[in-house]
Every structure is written in structure tokens, then in C-alpha cells.
Computed example of a mutant assay.
Amino acid sequence: MQVQVVDYTAKEAAEKFVKSLHETGFGVLINHPIKQGLVESIYQSWQAFFLSEEKHAFAFDPERQDGYFSTEISETAKGHSQKDIKEYYHVYPWGRIPAQLEAEILEYYRLTSELAAELLDWVEAHSPADVACKYSQALSLMIKDTPNTLLRILHYPPLTGSEEAGAVRAAAHEDINLLTILPAANEPGLQVQDQDGQWMDVPSDFGNLIINIGDMLQEASAGYFPSTSHRVINPTGKGSDKSRISLPLFLHPRSEVVLSENHTQASYLLERLRELGVKA
């Protein structure tokens, strides 16, 4: 099992990329259309935001799930008892965004959403016929005009040594959505679990774009595309005093989209948010 690094501009890119998603739940793109300068600028401006007191004016709304989530109310991964060591901000185009950060982050949201639709077309084109027939509609149509796609700006603060025993930056988990689009973070730490239960570093050179399957696509494909466990481990040595910024885009269908005989997007999401302890 090996996560493949695929040149987005190569003739065989779609086939190789989807093969990696099927075999590992992950794929990595290089020479993709998301400009590194935009990503670096977002890292810098949101790092400053997380270090400011302004973030508290945007405390999250339990109903809308937008805004700022502090380390005190951070997620507890399914099956774990300690909260992750992170704070984060949920961006939706219809949600609250600090004025000085809005234009740039919404441009990133637009560009990555457009790329994600193309990648879903790749997935569908290279799904076996007996898998593709299970999709209730074209995968890229599932996200057309969706209000549900979530951009999360994550800040993993430097470690102080006073963290709860066993707590990590992001405990092993699977994502809820269809696909997750993630530019490599400004610090390493992302790992994926292989079929033998071993943890492997995801190729995370700065500039790489990391894509992984979420539970909703696993559900829609009847397991052909696996939602693979992954985690962000705590740094050691000098790396422990550095922040880590990450920008995952969680691609969600519209609420009414049928994923399987058991779930729509809305029913599946509600079930998982309750498991995470962020919704009653």
C-alpha cells in the first residue's frame, strides 16, 4: 500500500490518482492549479488571527457550526477520550468571516471547490460500472450549489508540556464528507494507516495537494473507495515549539442528496456530529 504522488498535468493523471484513492484512500497531486503563494499568504494571515484576541468575537454558533472553535471545545475523535490539541475556524461563504481575511479565503474556497468537482469527475469516470451505478447522481452534481462544503482553518499550537496525557494534535479518525482537499501544512505530522494497521507518513512536501476519501463517498461507493484512518502526530524536539496551520476543504453534497439506502447527506452528517460531541 503506497499513497501515489501524481502529476496533475500528466496524461494518465486521472487513472493513477483514482487508483491510489481506491487502494489507500489517499492521493497526492503535484503541478496542480492551486497557487502556493495564495496558500502561504493564508497561512500567515490566519496565524496572526489565531494569535489575536479578535478570534473570540467569532465564537462558533452551535446551530450553524460556523466561526471559531477554541481548544477547550475542540473535537474528540470517535473512539477517543481526549480532545485534540487544536483550535480552528469554520468558513462557509454564507457564514461569518473576519473582514480583513474574507476576500482571500473565499477565493481559495472557490478555487479548491472547482478543482474538487473535477476530481469527482475523475473518480466517477474511473469507478467500475458496478460501483458507478450505485451513485444516485453524478458525483460532481452532488455538490452543485451546495451550501454545506466546509473550509476549516486549523491551528495546532506549540506544545507546552502541560497537555493531557495521551492527547495528540489530531487523533486517528476518518473524515465525514465526500473528498477532502488539503494543501501540505507548514509543518509535518500527517500519517495514514495501512491495511496492516501500520502508520505511514503522507508525502507532504510543501506545495503538494493531499486528497483523501471521506465516509460519504465510502458510503456512496459501497466501500469501493475507503475512508482511511489518518492522524496528526505531536512533533518532537525543536519541532514542538512550532505552530502548524492546515487548510482542509471538506467537500459535502447538498443536504437532500441520497448517499445510499441508509442515508442522505443530512442524516449522515447529523449522526457523525453527535459522535464527535459538537452537536447535541
Rank of each mutant, 00 (worst) to 15 (best):
Q4H: 11
V5E: 01
V5K: 07
A10P: 00
K11R: 05
K11G: 00
E15M: 01
E15L: 05
K16N: 10
K16A: 07
E23R: 11
E23F: 00
G25W: 03
N31S: 09
P33W: 09
Q36E: 14
V39M: 06
Y43C: 03
A48H: 10
F50E: 09
S52G: 11
P62Y: 07
E63W: 00
F69E: 06
I73L: 12
S74Y: 08
E75A: 00
T76A: 12
G79W: 08
I85Q: 03
K86C: 08
K86G: 08
Y88C: 08
V91H: 02
I97F: 06
I97P: 04
P98R: 09
A99F: 10
A99P: 05
L101I: 11
L101P: 09
E102H: 14
E102L: 03
E102Q: 14
A103P: 00
Y108T: 00
Y108A: 05
R110W: 07
L115M: 15
L120S: 12
A125N: 15
H126T: 03
P128E: 13
A129H: 13
A132V: 05
D145W: 01
P147Q: 07
P147F: 10
N148Y: 05
N148L: 01
T149Q: 07
L159I: 10
S162Q: 14
S162Y: 10
A167D: 03
R169T: 04
A171C: 11
E174S: 13
N186S: 06
P188G: 12
D194H: 00
D194A: 02
M200F: 15
D205Y: 11
F206D: 07
N208F: 12
L209N: 02
I210L: 01
I213S: 11
I213N: 12
G214W: 10
L217H: 12
Q218G: 03
S221T: 11
S221Y: 05
G223R: 03
G223F: 06
P226V: 14
P226E: 12
S240P: 04
S240G: 06
S243D: 07
L251A: 06
V257W: 10
V258G: 03
V258N: 09
L259N: 13
E261T: 09
T264R: 04
S267N: 01
L269C: 10
L269V: 14
L273S: 05
L276G: 10
V278L: 14
K279Q: 13
